[in-house]
Design a protein around this nucleic acid. Structure first.
Lengths: 183, 183
DNA sequence: CCCCTTTTTGCAACTAGTTGCAAAAACAGA
DNA sequence: TCTGTTTTTGCAACTAGTTGCAAAAAGGGG
């Protein structure tokens, strides 16, 4: 139950239409909470029905027409409640690690290529984050909100750094492995 | 579509009953692919129906009776196919980072406590992994399978290390933050 | 043997995310 | 203005994971 809160956060940062939200989820927010436009529209409907947000101009509510939403006090309150409430960490699921473990049993054939592909993707993502950091967090910007957002971005940067290093190491190991057979 | 493959991997490592699988998922495998016993039983049924696994002794197939499964050739083949097939990384979703971002807008009240709790959990998990490493991967063990499994465990260890460091840093930042209000 | 508890298996309903597709408005060119 | 394309919104069906609950067998006294 986090998508509605992701949307509330985004809308508090800036009132937006469904499409604008989708774009913002593809950019900054989606880095730690991704969502498709279908999900977003569905959730916007629910949030409006719950009285957490409302459509802004909405002269003629009809299909294909841009509708912007803003957060109502009830929505703010709900977001604050949710943020403060203690939550247990969700169990991780990592397909790549699972495949590696499977490879220990059925052989590593075909895996190295995909590891390289993932390595490239992580490098790309890392570069993108670093670009954002340079642009949005120049030294000196340290209002509380900035520090928090920077902290989150740092997590992204450091995680991508971690994965590029780990994948590099994994590929080195692969190079040393005898063949592509189980054992 | 990874749970069936996680189960196949586990069963290839060692034929097991549903309950034994559940226990193993709670331990090593669940560290990167968790599953409840309900999921596991459901999936065992499907895998058996698909001819990927079969029940071992099964004198009287009935409820409440231990049933052990082993992987059939078709199952092995499917696992090998899946392992070799290229897969796009799934988008991340991290509630804690989302809450931090939300806190930049609605205030940090109540968050620090939960950060500390998560820090403790990650430290605990890290200690557990390190214990496993010491037990299962003493220096010298370097058959290909061991190297691969060790690689996976290293990812777990390094990730937990990362999170403990990041959370520690985050808590330091919190300490410096003015109050718990939005801005 | 009977009763009570624990273990093991499993069904069913629900929640969240994904995929495929399409309608309504807006826009651009003839 | 008509026409075809693009943008924006959205429904519906499907897949995967979660939660609640319970039945069948096994095991342990009395």
């Amino acid at each position: 139950m986090s998508l509605p809160h992701a949307i509330l956060t985004a809308l508090l940062e800036k009132p937006s239409s469904g499409l604008e939200l989708t774009r913002r989820f593809d950019k900054s927010i989606g880095y730690f909470w991704s969502a498709t436009h279908q999900q977003i529209y569905r959730e916007l409907g629910r949030l409006e029905a719950d009285g957490h947000i409302r459509a802004l101009p909405a002269e003629q509510p009809a299909r294909g027409q841009k509708k912007s939403y803003e957060v109502l006090p009830a929505g703010s309150a709900e977001l604050a409640r949710w943020t403060a409430a203690s939550q247990d960490p969700k169990p991780h699921r990592d397909v790549l690690l699972l495949r590696l473990r499977a490879a220990a049993v059925v052989g590593t054939a075909g895996l190295a290529d995909d590891l390289r592909r993932h390595l490239d993707l992580h490098r790309l993502q890392l570069a993108e984050y670093q670009e954002i950091e340079k642009r949005d967090f120049p030294p000196g910007r340290d209002a509380p909100q900035d520090r928090l957002r920077h902290l989150v971005l740092r997590a992204g940067i450091d995680l991508e750094t971690f994965w590029t290093q780990w994948l590099t190491h994994a590929l080195e190991e692969f190079a040393e492995l005898p063949g592509s057979e189980p054992a």
